[in-house]
Design a protein around this nucleic acid. Structure first.
Length: 491
RNA sequence: CGGGGUAUAGCACAGUCCGGUAGUGUACCUGGUUUGGGACCAGGGGGUCCUAGGUUCGAAUCCUAGUGCCCCGACCA
């Protein structure tokens, strides 16, 4: 049992780290705080990327690419923005190395100091709004609906694979609009795209809502988000969509002539999801045997393992497998036939469970004799022997069933871990013993939110969009409140 | 940047207290037997014991200084 995982319940963090490494998703690199995404992990990310990109295009967006480096002066133009990111920026100060005169390798050439330092982008609002100034003169130039797939760097103190790394891959949409209403509509539209993606493809249920002022993006007037619950009862922010108002347009002097010929500042949004979604995917579904991947994102949905003693038996099995594969492929199902003789069947079973392959077919001499196939599903770890005839339909239905089953499991888990509380004692008790989301009244002030955070580490994850109007008293201050918000300990 | 821990084979670790030829598991290589849930037997390769200095006949082990990494805080998608 070379790859046995630490149990989820024993040490969730360790379980997560081991799983990410052993399932070949990613590993820590030699570079501080950075991560190597391995081919299997990247294959999952590519599937996410492809689907998201499709959804962005469906909603009218196009892709572009902006520079990695941002002149320092751009950064200081939006006050809240610089305050939010200044503490975690990587800065380029020189442009050349030279041989160390003392013979110790190379050193930074002190003569090659940049006149203006360059910031490695932690996010691209500033460089993009600087660019948009040249793109926008008239109402006819609007809206601009651009997305960028890129890497960004945030110099985090402590990092965790996928959840928080110094460099990460993401997409960032940056849109410009003629009216406030249109920009707000875009902000909602994109948070809905994210929610649809995470729920339908990742099979992770999310809560859509607004961030409180404390948690809002630096430079935004409103931040919409989707929040997911992990199996250890901690919340994970899975995506954000910001209504930026006219802040960046004013900071970068981006105005357009409206239909009346008058100059107005444009209205902006930005929205992003990152490789952090990979962390959400792992933590939401996996178990002590390894990953559980939703069929819609698995690099291959079905693995076929032959069981044989002799070469003749393998030939017979392969002949049958060669009939199955085209049937599955015709239904758009991706298949891997692992006929390698380097590993034994038992090893392969364990390995593909670790990697989260949704469906495994085992074909051995008994099956050849009986005209059957053994079908194992990853999510429930159950096995069935089914007829070879109609196997393609069976697997197609099974994949759909798995996709829905793991969503439902995550949904039920979240429902069970969401608690409505009305007193401060209850709040602390639930947080400590049960975890998960706590639905409670809040007086709406940043001070109260901060005090709750200081005392319990819990933060307001969001003010749910579908929160019902309800008279109540703040769970901490006792001041009046008109709706419940969601608290949790967050990643 | 505070508090704690740790550094020995690709990986996980023992050996350190009490100085005396560098070990175990796993992975890797070769051969054979195996193959319906991580096979077994035999043989083999692989080490600046984090770095520098000191004590000693002799240091992975003791002393001094430095460095890396991990965990817990502060910071954060």
């Amino acid at each position: 049992m070379a790859k046995e995982l630490t149990s989820r319940s024993e040490n969730y963090s360790q379980w997560y780290n081991e799983l990410v490494v052993k399932a070949d998703l990613a590993e820590n690199s030699a570079v501080r705080g950075c991560m190597v995404i391995k081919p299997y992990g990247y294959a999952i990310w590519e599937k996410m990327q492809a689907q998201l990109d499709f959804m962005f295009k469906e909603t009218g967006h196009v892709n572009a690419y902006f520079p990695l480096f941002i002149p320092k002066s751009f950064f200081s133009k939006e006050a809240a923005h610089v305050e939010g990111f200044a503490k975690e920026c990587a800065v380029v100060t020189h442009y050349r190395l030279k041989n160390d005169p003392n013979g110790n390798g190379v050193i930074v050439d002190p003569d090659a100091k940049l006149e203006e330092e360059l910031i490695v982008r932690p996010t691209s609002e500033t460089i993009i709004w600087h660019t948009y100034k040249n793109w926008i003169q008239s109402w006819r130039d609007l809206p601009i609906l651009v997305n960028q797939w890129a890497n960004v760097v945030r110099w985090e103190m402590r990092t965790r694979l996928f959840l928080r790394t110094a460099e990460f891959l993401w997409q960032e949409g940056h849109t410009a609009h003629a009216t406030k209403a249109e920009a707000i509509e875009e902000t909602f539209k994109m948070v809905n795209v994210y929610a649809d993606f995470v729920e339908q493809y990742m099979a992770v249920p999310v809560i859509k809502g607004h961030k409180s002022a404390n948690e809002r993006f630096a430079g935004a007037l409103d931040t919409l988000c989707i929040e997911a619950l992990m199996q250890d009862g901690k919340a994970l922010q899975a995506g954000t969509s910001h209504f930026l108002g006219q802040n960046f347009a004013k900071a970068f002097d981006v105005q357009f002539a409206n239909k009346e010929g008058k100059l107005e500042h444009v209205w902006a949004t930005s929205w992003g999801v990152s490789t952090r979604l990979m962390g959400a995917l792992v933590m939401a579904h996996s178990d002590d045997h390894g990953l559980v991947l939703p069929p819609k994102l698995a690099p291959f949905q079905v693995v076929i393992v032959p069981i044989y003693r002799s070469d003749e038996q393998l030939a017979d099995i392969t002949k049958k497998v060669d009939e199955i594969i085209p049937l599955l492929k015709a239904r758009g199902i991706s298949v891997k036939y692992d006929f390698s003789d380097a590993k034994k069947p038992g090893w392969k079973f364990a390995e593909y469970e670790l990697k989260g392959v949704p469906v495994r077919l085992a074909v051995g001499p008994r099956d050849i004799e009986n005209g059957t196939v053994e079908v194992a599903r990853r999510d429930t770890l159950t096995k069935e022997v089914v007829n070879f005839v109609g196997i393609d339909q069976y697997v197609e239905d099974l994949l759909e069933n798995i996709q829905q089953t793991i969503y439902k499991k995550a949904f039920d888990f979240r429902a069970e871990k969401t608690t409505s509380v009305d007193t401060w004692d209850e709040f602390k008790e639930v947080l400590e013993n049960k975890g998960g989301f706590i639905s409670a009244h809040w007086d709406g002030t940043p001070e109260t939110e901060q005090k709750i955070k200081d005392e319990t580490k819990a933060t307001i994850r969001c003010i749910p969009m579908d929160a019902v109007e309800e008279e109540g008293l703040c769970v901490y201050s006792g001041n009046p409140s008109n709706k419940r918000v969601l608290f949790a300990i967050a990643y």
